[in-house]
């Protein structure tokens, strides 16, 4: 999307030689110049960003969840480990989004699944399971539980780049930007700020027995 940039106003006093051609005289004046600067946006996403990260919940399943082997502090995978079909889980401190921008109007952060949930080991039939209504996000809070209100991730309408979207999502063929429904954070200010997110897993009783993987792609756009 093309848009106008946020204006930065400045008064620039100049000594101007006004070309009075007829009289050959010169005089001083002032010029007011309003200009815009090119905003910059940088962002990083850190999985497992705080101590205590990992899954909890599964009430009624008879099993206590523990982080999977690919979950490592300040990186790695949001690995729920073993979970029981038909139950709900919360993954604490799943991902933290850090944004640095000089855009005083702020920014919007979007997040989508690059694909649906990809099943493997064993490969189910069909090989994917809908991410919608299965994997959810909510802003991190110590009071969050597996039953806290949360918003479902969507499968993107863009093109997944790399294997299963490991390199992100190309939105050029789908309007250029992620859909508004995938907004996870809308900041009205710029600067260097962060927001943490927990993930929720709500497993239907009909989900196949398999290992599932998906990439969550965050896109940050200046206002």
């Amino acid at each position: 999307m093309i848009r106008r940039l946020a204006p930065t106003a400045a008064i620039l006093f100049l000594v101007v030689a006004v070309p009075f051609v007829a009289s050959g005289q010169s005089t001083n004046g002032s010029a007011k110049l309003t200009y815009k600067v090119l905003p910059t946006v940088k962002a990083q996403v850190v999985p497992n960003y705080a101590s205590g990260y990992g899954p909890q919940g599964g009430l009624g399943s008879g099993a206590t969840p523990t982080p999977g082997p690919n979950a490592v502090a300040n990186g790695g995978t949001v690995d729920f480990g073993n979970v029981v079909a038909g139950y709900q889980y919360l993954y604490k401190y799943a991902a933290q989004v850090n944004v640095q921008t000089n855009d005083s109007a702020g920014f919007v952060v979007y997040a989508e699944g690059a694909t649906d949930l990809n099943g493997s080991n064993p490969v189910p039939s069909p090989a994917t399971y809908p991410i919608l209504s299965t994997l959810f996000w909510l802003t991190s809070s110590s009071s969050n539980t597996a039953f806290s209100p949360a918003t479902s991730f969507n499968k993107t309408g863009g093109t997944a780049l790399g294997v299963n979207g490991s390199n992100g999502i190309d939105y050029s063929g789908s309007g250029g930007t992620p859909p508004a429904a995938s907004t996870v954070w809308n900041s009205a200010t710029g600067g260097n700020i962060s927001q943490g997110f927990d993930y929720q897993l709500r497993l239907s009783g009909s989900i196949p027995i398999s290992q599932f993987n998906v990439y969550i792609v965050y896109t940050v756009i200046g206002n």
Binding site: I2, G60, V78, T101, L201, I207, Y215, V217, T219
Partner: peptide, 29 residues
């Protein structure tokens, strides 16, 4: 005209392994 500044950080990999429900024979939703 200048395009909006945007950036896509490294995607977050998510993984889980589903196990069969021991209660599935009695109660399912």
């Amino acid at each position: 005209m200048i395009a909006q500044s945007s950036v896509q950080p490294t995607p977050v990999p998510v993984q889980f392994v589903t196990k069969s429900d021991p209660n599935a024979a009695f109660l399912q939703i």
